[in-house]
Computed example of a mutant assay.
Amino acid sequence: MSRLPATVARETGLSTIRLDLERGPYGWLAYSMPDRYSRLPTLAEEDEIRRDLVAATEPVEVSELERAIARLVAAYPQRGAADIRGYVIGLAEHLAGFPADVVARACWEIVHAKAFLPAVAEVVALAESYAGPRRHALRALDAVDVERERRRKVEAEQARQEDSRQRWRAAETQVLDAIAAAKPGHDAAEIFDRLGINHRIRLKLAAIGSDDDLVALVDALEVG
């Protein structure tokens, strides 16, 4: 979200927190939830983003809200006092939950774009268009922790499977070496390949577990 002009921020006394959610590597937080392809912030980055978002979603102070509404209404002097009172009450009620800079920007943009004072719902909709992405980003950050844990489990499982594959390959190499030592003059790989799958598995498990068991099994192999 861009800043209000400095003069407006100064005259209204409203803070104008700038969140560059639409820029940088984590812009997706403002409009989508994390998935397997999202670039996740580090824990330190997440804490920093969350602090900014929490500050940027704090509701406007009553005095600031009153000042912003007064400036908005003053820009449209054509309505009667009775109408204005109800309008101001409606605005105050529905804008009270928005951040100060969002209220300021919504009122400022309306004055510069509308010839007539818009309905309360239109002002609220404009404010929501600025505040909504911040609220969404906070929800997305909560989901980031879930996605980070999911990825950790996936990576741990992948590492476990890779370790198992490496041990299995090493066991086969050990079996072939044992066959070559026990059956000199024969092709160890050919002997191994002629064995049934259950026999090959048994030899590999022996290689992983006990050298003595492997030697005994290899010695018992018959070669043609």
Score class of each variant (00 low, 15 high):
residue 125 A to H: 10
residue 158 Q to F: 07
residue 138 L to W: 13
residue 96 A to I: 03
residue 140 A to Y: 08
residue 220 A to I: 01
residue 154 V to T: 14
residue 75 A to I: 09
residue 136 H to L: 04
residue 157 E to P: 00
residue 98 F to A: 03
residue 73 V to E: 08
residue 142 D to W: 02
residue 144 V to S: 06
residue 195 L to K: 07
residue 138 L to D: 02
residue 110 I to S: 05
residue 125 A to I: 03
residue 129 S to E: 15
residue 26 Y to D: 03
residue 194 R to Y: 00
residue 176 L to G: 12
residue 51 R to D: 10
residue 121 A to F: 02
residue 118 P to T: 08
residue 115 A to Y: 02
residue 170 A to L: 12
residue 4 L to Y: 09
residue 65 L to C: 09
residue 194 R to N: 07
residue 114 K to I: 00
residue 101 D to P: 03
residue 47 D to P: 00
residue 97 G to A: 11
residue 81 A to G: 02
residue 158 Q to S: 06
residue 159 A to E: 15
residue 3 R to F: 10
residue 147 E to A: 10
residue 16 T to F: 04
residue 183 K to N: 08
residue 139 R to H: 09
residue 170 A to D: 15
residue 5 P to N: 03
residue 32 S to Q: 12
residue 84 I to K: 13
residue 224 G to N: 09
residue 85 R to S: 11
residue 1 M to D: 04
residue 126 L to S: 05
residue 11 E to R: 15
residue 31 Y to W: 09
residue 188 A to K: 06
residue 51 R to Y: 00
residue 220 A to C: 06
residue 178 A to F: 05
residue 43 L to W: 04
residue 161 Q to R: 15
residue 77 P to L: 11
residue 47 D to G: 11
residue 193 D to I: 07
residue 87 Y to R: 03
residue 62 V to L: 13
residue 32 S to D: 06
residue 148 R to K: 12
residue 57 T to Y: 03
residue 206 A to N: 04
residue 201 I to F: 07
residue 31 Y to P: 00
residue 159 A to C: 00
residue 6 A to G: 01
residue 87 Y to F: 13
